[in-house]
Design a protein around this nucleic acid. Structure first.
Lengths: 153, 153
DNA sequence: AATGAAACTCGGATCTG
DNA sequence: CAGATCCGAGTTTCATT
């Protein structure tokens, strides 16, 4: 079969659907359809295909500030190269760590995390420092988040 | 009335609603209700209150990789302090920049960005270097994103 | 908490380029 | 042949009681 499962092509209609959803993920297919001047079924099929192909995902996003999760930090890690994957695995399993990426530069790894207060930050850093094969870390406290967008198009 | 607009208190039921939504933002109130053994109306009012109070938000999130947006980078900035707000404003207006935060440490500012390819990265960096009052930058290319969660609880 | 009307979703059949 | 539309039955939402 020529065409395979993941068709990464996205046309203008798909983009406009995404635009609606990025503002309100629960907008009804029917409402989008009237705005876009197509049938509800068309929007629904497009949506299902995009979800199927992992192009989009509609999810509830929590605002940590309103929830009293007021401390955010970024940590960079130097790691013994052969154990990089193990360290990544450990970090992924820590629930306060939200984001983990490998990077170029002085440190191979960068993680972002959100916590209630500075006490929890301290605890977390202590726990992290128990992870084997980390040779050094660099902690940046986040003072304020000015932009946090989920749109890429 | 005693209770004011932003009741940041969240109970167990709210949390479980959030848990459902963080997996599927479009799950119907009715379905959550049967799982949670409460009425649809209860779930709906809880949801509306949480959105109202900016505790959660249901949004479409695009997977940049599937969309061919394959290059991600993090930039740190040293800025002349009195112009910090101006620089933040400039960065916020750049559509490829997704995340902007002030931090402690050597650099006052950190931004994350997503682009199609290295050409676009180059262009973006050039544009960023035109912004006045930035004294130095540090670019980290993201090699791989290992975790990107939206749950905080 | 229950009810009922209006809105929405869903799948199948059909049409179109 | 994929993708759009039409359509009717089944759900979900939502204001009112």
């Amino acid at each position: 079969m020529a065409s395979n499962a993941s068709k990464e092509v996205i046309d203008d209609l798909d983009k406009r659907i995404i635009q609606f959803l990025s503002h309100n993920g629960r907008m009804s297919f029917a409402e989008m359809a009237t705005h876009l001047d197509v049938t509800e079924k068309t929007v629904r099929t497009r949506y299902n295909n995009m979800v199927e192909n992992k192009i989009i995902e509609v999810v509830g996003v929590v605002n940590p500030i309103t929830l009293g999760i007021k401390v955010a930090a970024i940590i960079q890690f130097r790691v013994i190269p052969e154990f990089l994957d193990d360290v990544i695995e450990e970090l992924k399993n820590n629930p306060v760590i939200r984001y983990v990426t490998t990077t170029s530069g002085d440190y191979q790894l960068l993680a972002q995390m959100n916590m209630r207060d500075y006490e929890e930050l301290n605890d977390t850093i202590k726990i992290i420092h128990q992870i084997p094969n980390i040779t050094s870390t660099n902690v940046l406290i986040q003072l304020d988040v000015h932009k946090n967008s989920f749109e890429f198009i």
